[in-house]
Design a protein around this nucleic acid. Structure first.
Lengths: 343, 343
DNA sequence: GTGAAAGCGCTAACAG
DNA sequence: CTGTTAGCGCTTTCAC
């Protein structure tokens, strides 16, 4: 709660000068005191703090930024269509973890969004224009021009998810989609399932591609084109893809879905076709989302370490900002198989 | 796309000084040129623009802010628990409309969030610390200490929804919940329904209270305590409240739910009890959310002008910022009855 | 219409 | 450990 005492500055808001005068020290000392207090005697520190409290002083961010060359802010950039974003529960988690972790390090999080070309240009101007010290990005689609622009600007940036086409030039943290897919498909095989179908995610996304690659690797030479259908992560698409598989007349005793939501749709479609889960067809999902336990039978799936990846992203960004990290850093986090009833 | 030409400044990034030198004018003239171009000859304007393009100049926001006293940024403050927020589809709409409207006025939108006491204090420091010129707030719950703090700080603020306890001191825009509730309950009565029950929202929220008050006013002296049950907006609570009404043995031929989601839950409960909708019980919702047309029968409900309220909020904030508006402004927007099949 | 000059409030380098 | 001083890059009077 700021105190409301008269201040000497004509501007209305007290400045560092006012604090210095009241504390009987110089401007420089006050500056040091409010920036960690190195090289300041405890007694002086206390005196400065007292003056700050009395005056209700708080630093002018513009002045600090102008003098120091940094802003203390980091942007969380959303470049997907917003309707989708805000439906994503992970998004809220990211915001929460980022805020918390950055605050611990004395920084602020700004959430910024752009949909469409114009807004992306505008956002690029903003990010490279000196408003923030760095940025955390989620980029679900490949070939983002914004990415190239940020890379060229030299702004410290960490991408959540693998930035297709920029894997070498940027820092990023992603989960090991391929490894996780391998693990769960291998699990299905180990359960004695011999013909394993799959419903992939969009293949122009990194996760969609990688999970499919994991599936292919395990299936190996038993791969058959007619055991593969494609979806867009949604439950609806999972249902449609399953109906498509069934319509082909192909038989299969296991189905690996690249998302829980698609698995939910798949189960509904299998049921309608008179097939039992997991007896006739074992179904596996991916994500361990809320959907996983809401459906009957509960999904065998893969848990993704979202919180850890958010924390890791902040850690890397911090390193980039304080120059402890100078080369692009890439981190692949392992996920964990969660066995329930559907497979 | 910034040009990458050599610049004269040692700092690396070109300054207004570099632009002035290249354009053959003074610093002041460049400043005027990039701030609307008043009192600058067209020919000079063009020359300055050319220099800016050549150098890839963009203004240093910290320097501008320090010199001018404003930041060009506005915060969108979320003080609800974030899990809930990001589930709310209106939230994405607000972000989109705010960004667009502010950009048109040359400002940036920052999204900031706080849950819990600590974060709220931190956020208060941020907002009153000179990082932004003004703020747009959503405040679902009454008695927000943040509100009092912002009011005291004098920061231009517009609240979305009626800020209980601060109606006089702050500017806000809300929908006419009470009028809308009256309208829809009156509609039920006009359809010949004689005993109209209601499921209210939380009564510590403005909307919850107002919608309930609208109901009471229309019902008038026919009001009966046992026709009222309470929910928390969720579908689940709507179902529970309906079961409660039914368990009381009370009979009713119409049910006004203060949210579409509660109406969805209510319909499910009525069905289970063997009651037909709308034949035995006419059900009305509120919000005209996506849920309204997903349920069977489609809901008769009330459409809330979210987009208009967002635009109105920005308009008021803009007035506050440029001092065209000096007194707190309050706006109540009308909603619209949407008749479908449930009543 | 345009130039010159005085800060905006702070950090950081340099003495001491 | 502390005071002094020189800017950071821009806006904004005030003359001309």
């Amino acid at each position: 709660m700021p105190a409301h005492h008269p201040v000497s500055s004509p501007s209305g808001r007290p400045t560092i000068e006012d604090v210095a005068r009241l504390a009987g020290v110089s401007r420089g000392t006050v500056s040091r005191a409010i920036n960690g207090g190195r090289h300041v005697r405890p007694a002086v520190m206390a005196e400065v703090q007292r003056a700050i409290d009395i005056l209700g002083y708080s630093v002018n961010p513009a002045a600090r930024s102008l003098a120091s060359g940094r802003t203390g802010s980091v942007a969380f950039v959303l470049s997907e269509r917003q309707e989708h974003l805000f439906e994503d529960p992970n998004f809220g988690l990211f915001v929460r973890v980022f805020s918390r972790e950055l605050r611990r390090r004395g920084r602020h999080l700004l959430v910024t969004a752009a949909e469409g070309k114009d807004e992306e240009l505008f956002l690029g101007d903003y990010l490279t224009g000196g408003h923030v010290d760095g940025a955390l990005l989620t980029l679900p689609h490949a070939r983002e021009p914004l990415l190239e622009r940020l890379r060229a600007s030299g702004l410290p940036v960490v991408v959540l998810g693998e930035p297709l086409g920029h894997q070498e030039a940027l820092s990023w943290v992603a989960i090991d989609d391929e490894g996780a897919a391998e693990e769960i498909v291998r699990y299905l095989a180990a359960k004695g399932r011999s013909s394993i179908a799959t419903i992939t995610g969009p293949l122009n996304t990194s996760s969609g591609r990688r999970r499919y690659e994991g599936y292919r690797r395990v299936v190996g030479r038993r791969y058959r084109k007619d055991l593969v259908a494609h979806g867009d992560w949604s439950s609806h698409s999972g249902r449609a893809a399953t109906e498509q598989l069934l319509a082909r007349g192909t038989t299969f005793d296991a189905l690996f879905c690249a998302s829980d939501r698609m698995a939910v749709g798949a189960i509904a479609a299998l049921r309608e076709a008179g097939l039992g889960v997991p007896d006739d067809v074992a179904v596996a999902g991916f994500d361990d989302s809320v959907a996983a336990t809401m459906v009957e039978p509960a999904l065998t799936t893969v848990r993704i370490p979202f919180e850890e990846s958010a924390m890791e992203a902040v850690r890397i960004l911090e390193g980039l900002l304080d120059k402890t990290i100078t080369e692009p850093r890439r981190v692949l986090l392992p996920s964990k198989l969660v066995v329930r009833d559907s497979a």
